[in-house]
Design a protein around this nucleic acid. Structure first.
Lengths: 239, 239
DNA sequence: CGCGATCTTGATAGGGTTCAAGGTCCGTGG
DNA sequence: CCACGGACCTTGAACCCTATCAAGATCGCG
């Protein structure tokens, strides 16, 4: 069940059989969430950490006037709130953007990993660091790129991340977000989000129909995005 | 010398005498950087991790057309590239925004901490998680707040972080960034950055002269920012 | 005192939000 | 089987925010 987690970790370093067994033992509990349901509530103190096994989820924060900013997108193999095991209190919510299947790890068992399995701990730490890297790349895109370059960057990133966990089909991948949800990712209005998408379609860069995105021209898309996958740490190396 | 690191960590959990000694041993090497100098270069593979002891530094990324986005500000007590010890290659640069004094830790010695000192490892992991939290709060501010609210949020955050390491004086703190550098933090043009600052001054929220910022009205500033310090994890709790 | 860096202000143009309305798609119930 | 409703997508128009260009003022250092 936690195969996508293995794929994620094993793209960065070798896991021993013991480490795989240990993860499997720790992540044996399963749950499902419907689209739109909160997987973890803002302000809560979860006793478990959540691994996405199937589906898309988002971290988000609501502002006082009711607008929403999504600060991360999560796909199968992502530990969405591993950090809560040390941060204790959630400073944002996590919502299912599609029906989600997740695996849960009790915090005391995660703590035991940090006590007894240093290499595996480093791998989990690395996982949170890579997500920090992704967050930084989002800031660069928000602050200094054009809106179409920003969208292009997100799509290149998602394609790369989904490929790692075998969720791409040629140049296509399933993408359950509405344009309104995507606007909350990019910090745009729904209307403008739509116009940016239209432009990318007209340019022949992507197709996006029925919740399936196809990258029609990777070279032009990634160069528009100035996409450099280095920050995703997609190579095996002793960590 | 690494006192600000102790202050940072001890605001989150108790450190044992052994842990303090160990950190001191690992961080014994010292270096200085001039304002504007790169502390760590984009794309490099550093063999050490860097703790800011005195001064301000920034993580940044340059885009192809030469604009710069700053993705984090670092103050005394911040480990600016602790992550490099597992990420190996830098996906961004780190620049000194003022003369900086830093302490260096060899990566093999950090690795030894993860092998032998699990609680201290968790504290260091937590430190990187808190910086991840800060990065997320920046995304919310960039995406869904007005520019003056964004600036207000950054100032509330800096005041809170500087207070932890004893770098505030009443409601004031030294802040070495130029308005142009601040524009690179917020993803704005220099001209508009200036206008936002003017507005905040006219409103009587802050004063900012000679690289000293004074918060004149914390209540109004923090409410403009919708500032909730929860994400900084400023409480002691077993981690 | 002079020079470079930084700050400030004005004017113009372009990008993005908001308001408004109509269109499309799909699931549900009569 | 068709009508209806809701969610989502699309387009137009007016207004506002922000970038850019340009110039002048101020600060701080040698």
């Amino acid at each position: 069940m936690i195969d996508p987690l293995f794929k994620n970790l094993e793209h960065r370093d070798v896991l021993s059989a013991d480490e795989r067994t240990l993860l499997q033992k720790v992540l044996r509990k399963e749950r499902r969430f419907a689209k739109g349901e909160d997987i973890v509530a803002d302000g809560s103190r979860p006793g478990t950490s959540t691994l996405i096994v199937e589906g898309f989820a988002a971290r988000y924060k609501l502002t006082e006037d009711g607008t929403r900013q999504i600060t991360a997108l999560h796909v199968p193999g992502d530990f969405v709130d591993l950090h809560a095991f040390m941060m204790k209190t959630m400073d944002h919510g996590i919502v299912a953007l599609s029906p989600c299947r997740v695996a849960l790890a009790e915090h005391p068992e995660l703590k035991a990993i940090t006590e007894n399995a240093p290499h595996l701990s480093r791998m989990l730490w690395l996982d949170t660091l890579i997500h920090g890297s992704i967050t930084r790349s989002w800031i660069v895109a928000m602050g200094r790129r054009s809106k179409s370059s920003h969208l292009a960057h997100i799509l290149c990133e998602l394609y790369s991340r989904l490929k790692v966990v075998d969720r791409v089909d040629g140049q296509s991948f399933a993408f359950p977000l509405s344009q309104g949800e995507m606007a909350d990712v990019m910090g745009l209005s729904l209307v403008h989000m739509n116009r940016v998408i239209q432009t990318m379609r007209r340019e022949g860069l992507i197709s996006w129909v029925n919740q399936i995105i196809t990258i029609l021209d990777w070279d032009r898309l990634s160069s528009l995005a100035e996409f450099d996958p280095l920050y995703l740490n997609l190579w095996v190396e002793p960590r």
